[in-house]
Amino acid sequence: MTIRLEGIKKIYQIGTQEVAALNGINLNIKKGEFAALMGPSGSGKSTLMNILGCLDRPTVGSYKLDGKEVAHLSDDDLAKTRNKKIGFVFQNFNLLSRISALDNVALPLVYAGIGRKERMERAYHYLKAVGLDTRADHQPNELSGGQRQRVAIARALVNDPSIIMADEPTGNLDTKSTKEIMNIFIDLHEQGKTIILVTHEPEIATCASRQLLVRDGVITRDAGKGEKMDVV
């Protein structure tokens, strides 16, 4: 599962003004890589993640996922790609508030067309993997921020995608929760999943095998593990 971006631009039209959120991104991410995206606020990290996660389409440029040009896929094909190949973790969790943690985790399996019994088993398995099997019946508003994010991670993992994308997964969490979440990502990386993670914090970025710095819609630095990058 490889990711290949060439000349990706995302241009927003606000009135007569054009805002280039992404201004020519070239990037290859190989299978099993753990890439951390850093950069100042407004630099285009989320925009890039959304395009990588097939939630959004670039204005120009080519995005090949697994050798297939994403621009050629229909909206429904994109939905299926999101469902099967990509697990997305949002900064603000994006859980459905009126259903239980277990049902939230099982949601991607509903759209994958998997029967109820198997859904519940698999959802429970991943909920257990993030240490929340005792909270399966709780609704999201009965959980702490860290617990919610772990539910969201379980949901991202439940359909066994090869790529996990996380846009500031620890942005709303305290240090303890942040550590727990990061350990999960490190584990996943060791299991061979491709991980792309947006973060503000250099310490978190050091967990990654590769660090990318985005500035004004372009990637300005591409460094290996352990190097400390100055974000600003």
């Binding site: 996660g53 909206d75 939905a79 997305f88 994006n94 949601l107 991607p108 759209y111 359909n159």
Partner: peptide, 10 residues
């Protein structure tokens, strides 16, 4: 939005 992000089709 959440449902679509998780793979719900039209």
């Amino acid at each position: 939005g959440i449902r679509k992000a998780l793979g719900a089709t039209f």
